[in-house]
């Protein structure tokens, strides 16, 4: 990956698209909250969007798989698809070095 490693002050803008309260959605929300609190405390904005309630957002934000976590900042944009149960893939998608 060619992106510069985020410095500890880099701000994260994240959006997690879920489908109601499905088990995968619940798992994904928990996993994303956990990694944010642990690794990005105080420097992230996380929006959680239920595409069942806001279907137009699925089109606008190019959601295909569900759940999907979109990291719009820092660049480059990344889309992490799944229930986020693979922690190292999640961390690598966020540009954080996997533990």
């Amino acid at each position: 990956m060619t992106d510069t490693a985020p410095t500890p002050s880099t701000r994260y803008v994240l959006c997690l698209f879920v489908t109601g309260a499905s088990p995968r959605s619940v798992r994904a929300i928990r996993a994303v909250r956990d990694i944010c609190d642990e690794r990005l405390a105080g420097r992230y904005d996380l929006e959680v969007v239920d595409i069942y309630r806001h279907p137009q957002r699925a089109r606008e934000d190019q959601v295909v798989g569900a759940p999907t976590l979109v990291k719009s900042l820092p660049l480059p944009v990344r889309r992490i698809i799944g229930d986020m149960s693979n922690g190292s893939r999640l961390a690598s998608g966020l540009g954080l070095i996997a533990r």
């Binding site: 279907p55 798989g65 799944g82």
Partner: peptide
């Protein structure tokens, strides 16, 4: 752009089509 982490489905497509 894509990273896959765990299980997923294609509800995004279904929601978009349905909408």
């Amino acid at each position: 752009e894509i990273e896959e982490s765990g299980e997923y489905d294609l509800e995004g497509i279904f929601v978009r089509l349905g909408y």
